[in-house]
Amino acid sequence: MHVVYPVVVAALLFSIGVYGVLARRNTILVLMSVELMLNAVNLNLVAFDVWLRDVLHGGQVLTLFVIVIAAAEVGIGLAIVLAVYRNRRTIDLDRLRELGEPVEPPVGDRG
């Protein structure tokens, strides 16, 4: 199998992830989209590793680490989402806007 196929699939997967991040308001869904992106990376790495016949198997090692990282991220992410939900009763990303630039009065003539 030519390396292009898995790479194109990975790219598509990554794009879907990006779309999900952009389109979803629910934080959990955003989290899942990020997982898609990470899995695209994994697919890439494994495919390259095989294709390159890397004796050190750098790609595979990295894949393992990425999986671990993804797990950790999900763990912490869900914990944070929980905390947010407890405090705010919502997990919609675009409704968490307490922090942000305050609305300014019109520009004066200082400066």
Binding site: G100, E104, V107, D109, G111
Partner: peptide, 20 residues
């Protein structure tokens, strides 16, 4: 000076707190 402050207001429009 004013122009800089206007620019500041403009850039801050993107910083209203929406993580998305």
């Amino acid at each position: 000076g004013q122009l800089t402050l206007r620019l500041s207001r403009l850039v801050k429009l993107a910083q209203q707190g929406n993580a998305q």
